[in-house]
């Protein structure tokens, strides 16, 4: 019983020299052995990373529900999500998702998105090269006197526009990457921050190539 399976067609063949070289390759699994290989060490990394993932989808009814349902159903984190039609002729929408997780989780998210039927492309704007990301926030600050002046001054530094003002309040429009918007809001807190409305992240890869490559 134990002997039979090893008797194979290969038996009569000479032991190839290659088999030795093979061993060396097999032992060294830590490095990238071929293009596209995901190193185990990367997957074992338990640190959490923030990623922006862009998904080009058919702009059909329910497609957003599919994406959101996927995140909710599998317990993935959504920090922000934006969606809008970007190509009317072809009926394409772009969804940008800011999410965070371990490398393993992020890879899962991309694979799960990739197998949704109406999805054309999934692109990791954090991992697949440099990218630009922007979001817009409307920030309402109420106060008088010195605080009001200070809010205006900081708004200036952040190149925020005042889009509404009353004697006791401003609404600032601030645009930038998430960190900048976060920082602005943080600074407004002691100055009478009332409420914030944010668009979530819109992002594109740098350079000439589009998402469809």
């Amino acid at each position: 019983m134990a002997k039979k399976p090893v008797k194979t067609a290969a038996k009569s063949q000479p032991k190839a020299a290659k088999a030795v070289r093979v061993k060396a390759a097999a032992e060294d699994q830590s490095t990238n052995l071929y293009e596209g290989m995901i190193p185990v060490a990367r997957l074992r990394d338990k640190d959490i990373y923030r990623h922006v993932v862009s998904v080009l989808v058919d702009n059909e009814a329910g497609v957003l529900a599919r994406v959101i349902g996927l995140f909710a159903g599998r317990g993935y984190n959504i920090e922000s999500l934006t969606v809008a039609e970007v190509d009317h002729e072809r009926g394409l929408s772009r969804i940008n998702i800011a999410t965070s997780g371990t490398h393993q989780t992020i890879d899962q998210i991309k694979a799960q998105l990739g197998r949704l039927v109406p999805v054309h492309v999934v692109r990791d704007l954090t991992d697949d090269g440099p990218s630009v990301a922007r979001e817009l926030a409307l920030v309402k600050v109420a106060g008088i006197g010195e605080k009001r002046v200070e809010a205006l001054r900081i708004g200036d530094i952040f190149r925020a526009n005042v889009v509404d003002s009353s004697t006791q309040s401003f609404v600032f429009e601030v645009v930038g990457n998430t960190d900048k918007v976060d920082a602005f809001i943080e600074l407004m807190k002691p100055l009478g921050l009332v409420e914030v409305s944010r668009t979530g992240v819109a992002a594109l890869a740098r350079g000439a190539a589009g998402i469809e490559k």
Partner: peptide
Amino acid sequence: MWKARRYQADQKAIKAWWRQIE
């Protein structure tokens, strides 16, 4: 690929492995 590269399993090791399994 196994055939083209004329690979051959490590017969001695596999035999020992089967003995363990038995």
